[in-house]
């Protein structure tokens, strides 16, 4: 379990990193926390010709408040830093709660917020979280940059809109709306293990407790994080009654997810889990919404 030979670059500035990526083109692969990429390389399932290691670029490690009440998170910010940051907890209490479910402390000490997004593992928490929270991603390349909405970023398992010369630089989280509540539900075989099914629910209610918005994002049950359309359609403008929530859960599990059978669970079981978790998640999110 030793990786195949590769070239290694360790730039110390974003500019230098972007220039290196530009030069390498398809041969280059960004190394962030390395908690997914390095094992894949050790199994020789990933064989990048060159690694561009971002760990020496200090300017990519930050959590900054934004004026609108949101947050800007530098791509190299470690998961454990996000997990423990008081500002994150204050503005987005759901974030540390979800991050705690990522693997184990040692892995969160190395794994990065942006790295998980760029890696786009369909079973990973942070991509789904970014969709639920309507995150925007700052994507940079030599001599240019663009903003991409989380919803439009994930193309398939381990596939994103990033071009080889591009790098995810920052994750911007817009503020949570007034009257919002969130919940995270996951079932995994073991603490710290991959979810067999999981759902992040972010809802907003008006002063009459009617649903103003419902972002229900499922993951581990399809090729990318799945933002439910049914949840919005059924709930928007209505009271989130148990019946309405049950209807959403039923519809999502039947129509919007596509779990497969694997060694840890049948597709039928995982579809059943989706129904249970959506119901529990929406119920909890609406209870919390104020």
């Amino acid at each position: 379990m030793k990786p195949a030979p590769f070239e290694y670059y360790a730039p110390t500035s974003v500019e230098e990193a972007l220039a290196t990526l530009q030069n390498l083109g398809y041969d280059g692969k960004v190394l962030a926390g390395g908690q997914s990429l390095i094992p894949a390389m050790n199994f020789r399932m990933a064989r990048p010709a060159a690694l561009v290691d971002l760990n020496k670029i200090k300017e990519l490690f930050y959590i900054k408040p934004t004026d609108d009440g949101g947050l800007a998170i530098g791509t190299m910010t470690r998961d454990s830093v996000v997990e423990k940051d008081p500002l994150v907890a204050e503005r987005f209490p759901i974030v540390p709660y979800v991050v705690k479910h990522i693997a184990h402390p040692q892995i969160r000490n190395r794994g990065t917020f942006g790295g998980a997004i760029a890696h786009a593992d369909p079973a990973a928490q942070i991509p789904a979280l970014s969709v639920a929270l309507q995150a925007r991603f700052l994507v940079r390349k030599q001599g240019g940059e663009r903003w991409v909405n989380a919803e439009e970023f994930f193309m398939g398992p381990f596939m994103t809109v990033l071009e080889p010369e591009e790098m995810l630089a920052e994750v911007a989280l817009p503020p949570m709306a007034k009257g919002s509540g969130a919940s995270y539900q996951q079932v995994s075989r073991q603490k710290g293990g991959y979810a067999q099914a999981a759902v992040i629910s972010v809802v907003v209610v008006d002063e009459n407790k009617r649903c103003k918005d419902a972002r229900v994002v499922l993951f581990s049950v399809g090729e990318t994080p799945i933002l439910s359309q049914a949840a919005r359609k059924i709930l928007m403008g209505n009271l989130p009654t148990p019946e309405a929530i049950a209807e959403v859960a039923e519809k999502i599990s039947k129509e919007e997810v596509d779990p497969g059978t694997d060694i840890h669970g049948t597709a039928e079981y995982r579809r059943h889990l989706v129904k249970v978790l959506v119901r529990r998640g929406l119920t909890e999110a609406f209870e919390r919404a104020k």
């Binding site: 079932v187 075989r189 669970g265 079981y269």
Partner: peptide
């Protein structure tokens, strides 16, 4: 007896 297996047995 994984949860999925228990689920299948119960079904």
């Amino acid at each position: 007896l994984s949860p999925s297996r228990i689920f299948t047995y119960v079904q």
